[in-house]
Structure formats: structure tokens, C-alpha cells
Write a protein that binds this DNA or RNA. Structure first.
Lengths: 330, 330
DNA sequence: ATAATCTAGTTAACCGTTTAACTAATAAGT
DNA sequence: ACTTATTAGTTAAACGGTTAACTAGATTAT
């Protein structure tokens, strides 16, 4: 790779002239510009952004930390973030955690090592409240932003879906369409999101005068076989509807129901969460996860922080159910 | 952020000692180690990988260039690549192209700017054969690897699915299950993959004594509305089966068929391509795209190139149809 | 005519590492 | 006892840029 020195030599000016010309802090005369441009073209010169970074202390790179890149919900957010940031020249590096705290910490280390400007963490590693690595990033001057990790205001910048009220809406909808035994399939036990959905579910049930059957509440850990067993159990226990905490889980539920020849939505209604491509393709009712909106807002918020506007923000996005062919008034 | 100088000062040694201790080229005595370790811990020192990079000329980062991150087929490959490379300490940066050559070139520029060690390009921008940016990367010492871009040996390192023989197998399977009017939904016109499938389709038809109806061959450009229209046309024209060049397209086809109350697979069989999560979840027959295998192999091949083993390799992976509930002998 | 301002550059220090080459002190070999 | 190796470091240059401070020459103002 050619360096700025090669270009300078070829153009017959100092390397400072090249650097300043490229950054717009020097206006060379026409003839010099011509020589510089020719030299750049001839050598295929591209500035070494890393060398620049060590002086300017900005890498023009942001990181996203997600449980899994092939999970459609995260993929949709990721793409939205990238689409929003790319026009500003940011590159995006992805670290996956498999929802493990340990891996999230490794990612944080990489982010520090690479002096990445800002990082977006999506969801929390299962059931863990250790924030020390995030704190360290902020102390190191790396801007952080959390998505679907906290559901009430706190010291971190955060954007989340209001799954408490969203969950209540789903339950309300199901009750209003005459369902009485609503199966609830949660993700991980002790994870904020699961517990919020559970709370919403129970409270809405009570508010509408139904009583709670704990046998209808299960944690699937986002595992397929576990989910299948749960769905079978729920059928056994007489569930007339199922609300699952992810579209993927809901689609697995649909599959089990189809295998058992149980008519959806006439016999059992199914609601997912995410409103991802998945739910659209299979025409499934789903609580909107607003992945693309969240990604877009997250990118904008991070951009703001990167520019130094540093009031920590907390956003809770209201959501609503998108009804399709897997739910029906009975 | 603390630097190596801070640590050196605190530990009372030269910065070279810190650097060499951390890289294992210096074995300090116990007592010194203790002082260094304490200084590192106290200052939360993490080496600045960018500063190191400018000296060592390796960034420990690889890039993947994909049409879209939220396309499930690419997401699966991406994750497989990352899983394979992460243990070696590589960070992965993603650039999306929307299948536009212009954007692919922008990505190439970023890759050069950031002195990224190696890049994997997945598929080709629609219908374009300009490889100058890839050539430039290789000339710049950046290792490149192409996926599903070339289907016969050439000067680039490349891994592809043998879609010619795969396509023939699908057509053969459909004919053997007594289908006579096979609709073929391709992607972009003039894109190698599309044309290969078309060739496979026509040749297999002729080999098995059926004649070709050009009205059954359409390009959907991977657009939903266009796909829906095509499917309706194919139904009109009496197709008894549909082979689509992507799972997503095939699922849209399934949806149209369902809307029209046409029984799949009894009335019309549908085959997708990819064998992605999508096809598994909706139990759709699909020609295997082997995304995860490709990702894994790609990562390994790139790793090899990064280590200097630089015979250009060309791999064509054989594939086969995975039958599920959307195809049937009639 | 002289001072003040502008233009188009240059010089040199700096960013945070790595690494080749050197050194001083200690240990080992004969 | 004297050379030779080994150990545990240090020094200084290098990597490829950026940037503050300077300068020489041309223009403008008074």
C-alpha cells in the first residue's frame, strides 16, 4: 500500500500539504492540485484510517453487540442501524454473545482495544445484571447505548419497547376475542423482559376478572425442542390461545399445532412478538417489536452522543398488536 | 484511555518492557511482572490495537460484504463466518450493498482505508462483471474470497454452490413426481446464478423428453409484488409446480397459493432455494444452499490465505434437495 | 513606501505502539 | 580467573498519518 509520503514525493510537495489538501484545510493552487491528484491516482493512494485514528482519536467505527446475527429480529435491527450510520461514513463491526455475559465482556474488550467510537448492546445476557464492562466503556470515553435492556429510566442511554403495556394489550385482545386460557411462553427466567411480560399477563388477567393458572406460563429458553414440549403441554392443559415472546417461538408453536391438526385460529389463536419478516410471511399475528424503528432511533441517538450531546436518554416505545391470520374472535 | 506510557511510568520500567512482556518476547523477573500487572490493573490498560496495527500492518479484522444483513440466507452465512473467525481474535465488519456495484465499490474503499486483513464478498452485484475493485484489494495485499459469484475456476478464490447440478436435480425430482409444467422463478436477469438455473432447467427438461415453455420462466428481481404477480401468472398458465431461486420468494409463492385456496402440495408443488430457517419453519421443500457450511469453509479458506498459504482455490459444492411438505408425487 | 493581511505552502512534534539493536549485570564453561 | 552466554532490561527509530506554528512571497491598505 502506498503512503502519504509516496504521494508527497511524487507530487513534489510536503506530506502535510497532502494531508491538509485532503482534509480541506489547505487550498493549493490549481497547478498543485493537479499534481497532487495525479499522484494520488497514479499510486492508488487511500489514507490509512488507523494511522489517522491514533492522532484524531476517532475510529469512525461503531460496534453492535447482539445475541445472534442469524436471529431475524436482531438482523433487522442491525441492518437499520447500519443503514442509518453508513451515510456518515461509519463502519459497523458486529460481535455476537449467544446471550452469555462472558462473551459480552470479551466483545467489550475488543471494543476498547479497537478504540471503537460507540457501541450498541442489544438485549441483555441471560439474567445478568453486571454492568461493569459497560461502565468501563463509558469511562474510557466510548459511547454506549442499550436496546431492550432496561425498562425504566436509569443512568444508561437506553431504548426499549414497552413490553409491559404491549403484553397487556395482547392479553386484553385475546380476552376480548373470548379466549380464557391463554398460554404464555416466555424466554429466560429472571430476564427483565420475561418477567415484565409475566407481570403484564397476570395483571391484565386479574383486571379483566380472570384468574391466573400458573400451569399456562412456561419458559422456553428459546430452544426448539423445549418449545415443542411446552406447546404440547399447553394443548393438553386446554389452552385456547398462545402468546409467545418471539416470532420464532410462535412459529414453532404453529408448526406443532399443524402437526397435531389443530386448527389455527379456530381452535387455538397464536400471537408472536417482533412483527418480523417471519410473522409477515406466515401471516401470523404479532406484537410489534419495531425492530427497524428502534435501530434507526438507536443510530440517531448514538450519533448524537458521538457529537457530544451527552444527556443520557431513556426511551420507552409504545407498541401494539398487528393482527393477521393466526388470531380470531371465537 | 491510558496508554502504554502510563503503565510504564507506574510500573517503573520502559514502555518497551511492557510491550514485550505483553507479546511474550520478554520474560521479566517475578517482581517486575508483579509491578507491571498491578500497573495494568490499576490503569485498566488495554493496548490500542490501531496503533499496533500501523506498525504490524495487520488489523485483525475481516470484512464481509453482503447484499443485505436482514436477508436470512446471508445472515446465516455471516454468523457462520464470524463463529469460525472469532476464536482467532478477528473482529468482523459488515458492509451491505443492496446488490449495487457502486455500493460494493464504496465498501472496497472502506476496506482499503481501514487496512482490513481480508474480505469475503457474498454473491455479485446484479449483473455486473466489473472486478477492478476486487483486483485492487488483492494488489493492496488484502486477501479476498468470493462466495456464489463464480461457477467455474478462475483467478479468484471462490466458493460456490453447484447450482447447475442442483437445479437439474430439482427439475428431475419434480418431473419424476409427475409434474409437467414447472414454473421457474429466477432472480435478476443476466446474473450468473439465474442463468445457470435457467440452463439447468432447460437441459433437464429436454433430457427427460419434455419441451420448454418460456412462459413458465420469469425473473422476480427478488421483489415481493413482482413475485406475487408472477405466481398468479404461473397459476393462470397451468403450472403444476414452482421452483423459486430463494426461500423468501418461494414463501411468497406459498402465500399467494394459500390466498387463492390452491392446495399445496396436492395441486401445486413448491421448491425453494437456501434451506434456510425459513424453509424449515414452514416445512417447505428447498434446494440446500448450505449457508453455514459455506460460511465455515469460507472462513477457513480466508484464514489460510491470511497465513500466507496463497494458492487460489476454487470450490464448487454439490448440493441436493431437502424434501418437506410442499412437494408430493402426484 | 511601509505596514498589514493573505495565500500557499513547510517544519517538526505528536499520536501509541513495535522491534531491532544495544547494554549492564549475572551465570556458566573451561 | 577469564572468556562466553544468558538474562533482563533500555534506547531510539519506525509505522502513517495530523496539526499547531511558522515562513516566504504576493496583495492590499494607508
Amino acid at each position: 500500500m502506498t503512503t502519504i509520503n509516496d504521494v508527497a514525493k511524487l507530487a513534489g510537495v510536503s506530506k502535510a500539504a497532502i494531508s491538509r489538501y485532503l482534509s480541506g484545510t489547505l487550498k493549493p493552487k490549481k497547478e498543485t492540485i493537479k499534481r497532487i491528484e495525479e499522484a494520488i491516482a497514479e499510486t492508488n493512494y487511500t489514507p490509512n484510517r488507523m494511522a489517522a485514528s491514533i492522532r484524531t482519536k476517532t475510529s469512525n467505527t461503531i460496534a453492535i453487540v447482539i445475541p445472534s446475527a442469524k436471529n431475524i429480529a436482531f438482523a433487522e435491527m442491525t441492518e437499520a442501524i447500519n443503514d442509518e450510520l453508513a451515510p456518515y461514513g461509519y463502519s459497523m463491526v458486529t460481535y455476537t454473545t449467544n446471550e452469555k455475559l462472558e462473551q459480552e465482556k470479551l466483545a467489550s474488550n475488543k471494543i476498547r482495544e479497537n478504540r471503537i467510537d460507540g457501541a450498541i448492546f442489544i438485549t441483555e445476557p441471560k439474567g445478568n445484571k453486571d454492568m461493569s464492562h459497560i461502565d468501563l466503556l463509558e469511562e474510557s470515553g466510548i459511547k454506549t447505548l442499550l436496546i431492550n435492556r432496561f425498562f425504566e429510566p436509569n443512568k444508561y442511554s437506553n431504548i426499549s419497547i414497552d413490553c409491559y403495556n404491549g403484553g397487556k394489550e395482547v392479553v386484553k385482545y385475546l380476552i376480548e376475542t373470548n379466549h380464557k386460557k391463554i398460554g404464555l411462553i416466555l424466554g429466560w427466567e429472571n430476564q427483565d423482559q420475561s418477567e415484565l411480560y409475566k407481570k403484564a399477563y397476570k395483571e391484565q388477567l386479574l383486571e379483566m376478572g380472570l384468574n391466573i393458572d400458573d400451569n399456562l406460563i412456561e419458559y422456553c429458553n428459546f430452544e426448539e425442542t423445549k418449545t415443542r414440549n411446552i406447546v404440547e403441554d399447553l394443548i393438553q392443559r386446554g389452552a385456547d390461545s398462545i402468546f409467545a415472546m418471539s416470532d420464532r417461538t410462535a412459529i414453532i408453536a404453529l408448526d406443532v399445532l399443524e402437526e397435531k391438526n389443530i386448527d389455527v385460529p379456530n381452535k387455538i389463536s397464536v400471537v408472536g412478538y417482533g412483527n418480523t419478516q417471519f410473522s409477515k410471511l406466515v401471516k401470523m399475528t404479532s406484537l410489534d417489536g419495531k425492530g427497524e424503528l428502534i435501530g434507526k432511533l438507536a443510530a440517531q441517538m448514538l450519533l448524537k452522543k458521538l457529537r457530544g450531546v451527552d444527556e443520557d436518554e431513556f426511551k420507552l416505545l409504545s407498541t401494539s398488536i398487528v393482527t393477521r391470520n393466526t388470531t380470531k374472535k371465537i
